[in-house]
Amino acid sequence: MTVENVVERTRSFDPYERGCPSRDLLDHIGSKWAVLVLGELGRNGSARFSVLRRVLAGVSEKMLTQTLRGLERDGLVRRTVYPEVPPHVEYELTALGQTLREPLKALTEWSVQHVEDVIAARGDYDRRADLAR
C-alpha cells in the first residue's frame, strides 16, 4: 500500500462525523475497562480471566466478559483455550492490540501525573457551582 493510499484511506474516516466507524472504535477502546484490560495485557503479555478479574478491582464478571469479547471481536485481543480439565483460557494482545500499548501507556501516565490537578479543578468548579445556587 502506498503512502497516498494510506492518506486517502484515513481521510475517509472522520470521528467527528455521525456514523463514522472510527467513532464506534473509539467508544470500545476508550472505555474504562477496555483501557485497563489492554494495559494489563500489555504489561504482562497474557493473563487468565481470573487474574484479570483480580487485578482490575471492581470489574464484574459480566463486564469483564463483555469487554474481552468486544476486544476480541475488534481484533485487539486473542483468546486461547487450552484443552485441559478444567479448561484453561488465556487472553493476550494481538499484533493490532500491541499497537495501542504506547498511546494507552501515555494516557495512563498522564492520568497519574495530573489526577491531583483534576481533583483540585473539580473542587473549584463545585465550589463555584454551590455559590451560584
Rank of each mutant, 00 (worst) to 15 (best):
V81N: 13
P87G: 04
T80I: 14
H88N: 09
E90I: 14
K105D: 09
L52F: 01
T80G: 02
L52I: 01
T67H: 14
H88L: 04
P87F: 11
Y91Q: 05
T108S: 14
L100M: 15
V55A: 08
S60Q: 01
G58I: 03
G70N: 11
R79H: 06
M63P: 07
T65V: 02
R79C: 08
R78N: 03
G75N: 00
V51H: 08
V89Q: 15
R53P: 03
R54S: 04
R78E: 09
S60N: 04
R69S: 11
Q98I: 10
L100T: 12
L76H: 08
L76A: 05
P86Y: 12
L64D: 07
V85H: 08
V51Q: 14
W110D: 10
L71W: 09
E102A: 15
E102G: 11
V59D: 01
Y91V: 06
L68Y: 09
L96P: 01
L93R: 00
V77L: 06
E84R: 10
Q66L: 10
A57L: 00
E92R: 11
L68H: 13
M63S: 12
V55C: 03
L56C: 08
H88V: 09
L93N: 00
L93Y: 02
Y82D: 09
R54T: 11
R54P: 05
V59W: 00
P87W: 13
T65W: 02
S111I: 09
P87M: 03
K105E: 10
V85N: 15
T80V: 10
Y82E: 09
L52D: 00
L68V: 12
P87Q: 14
V59N: 00
L96D: 08
K105C: 06
G97V: 00
E90G: 05
G70E: 11
T99W: 02
L71H: 10
L56T: 07
R79N: 03
Y82R: 11
L100I: 09
T67V: 15
R53S: 06
A106S: 13
A57E: 01
V81M: 08
